[in-house]
Nucleic acid binder design. Sequence first.
DNA 1: AACTAGAGCAACCGCATCGCG
DNA 2: ACGCGATGCGGTTGCTCTAGT
Length: 257
Amino acid sequence: MGRSPCCEKAHMNKGAWTKEEDQLLVDYIRKHGEGCWRSLPRAAGLQRCGKSCRLRWMNYLRPDLKRGNFTEEEDELIIKLHSLLGNKWSLIAGRLPGRTDNEIKNYWNTHIKRKLLSRGIDPNTHRLINESAVVSPSTLQNDVVETLHLDFAGKVKPEPVREEIGGINNCTSSGTTSEKDYGNEEDWVLNLELSVGPSYRYESTRKVSVVDSAESTRRWGSELFGTQSDAVCLCCRIGLFHNESCRNCRVSDVRTH
DNA sequence: AACTAGAGCAACCGCATCGCG
DNA sequence: ACGCGATGCGGTTGCTCTAGT
């Protein structure tokens, strides 16, 4: 019994992709678009399972991928996002145009971990290795640290946010704040329109309908954060995209907001 | 030149989540 | 509400390349 395999593996190629396979996949997707990965291999004439095709496309063949070395700005952004999100590579990748989750994950494991360790920072907790106190001040400007806040969809998970504001987060997947401090995980939703900013007042955004009894937490969020119009994306707040359009804010000059 | 160890990265695997009937 | 297939995600593996001896 048990789950049926995602594909018939007996006659499938495995291992590195050949140029011919790449070409077949690219040609097929150009013609038909992405989607239906399970049936794609057969339709494209590939002896690969759908998962493998998807991975190859996502991580290597997509035309919008940015190849080459990570910039210093990207490094810092990854570190900051990891301190907020933990090993949520796909979410982190969503904030780095042209980078894939796999690429970022590999880069983290091979470069950034070492970089943080050399700074005396534990890459898992983002805390200084020799001190129990706070955390990676070297990587975040003070004004940003003081005002780091998260914006929640529908429900607010208050305590960790307060911790964000007071020092730096405990929100990573390996964080230490216990679940009982803010209820069940299912009761709150982190809106990944993460924002970092000065002490603007900020209202929790509600991308999904609020169907809960969280009026109090909502009010709490409003009192704490003010209106959403003040929110600026993380990239802009930490000073990236100084001279170019930010894809998150759609604003060409971040100094104006 | 040959060998070895380590780094880097593409790809795989298994589980989780989503979405549709 | 439930079951099941499809897709997505994160951890891990293993191959390739390169630097050191």
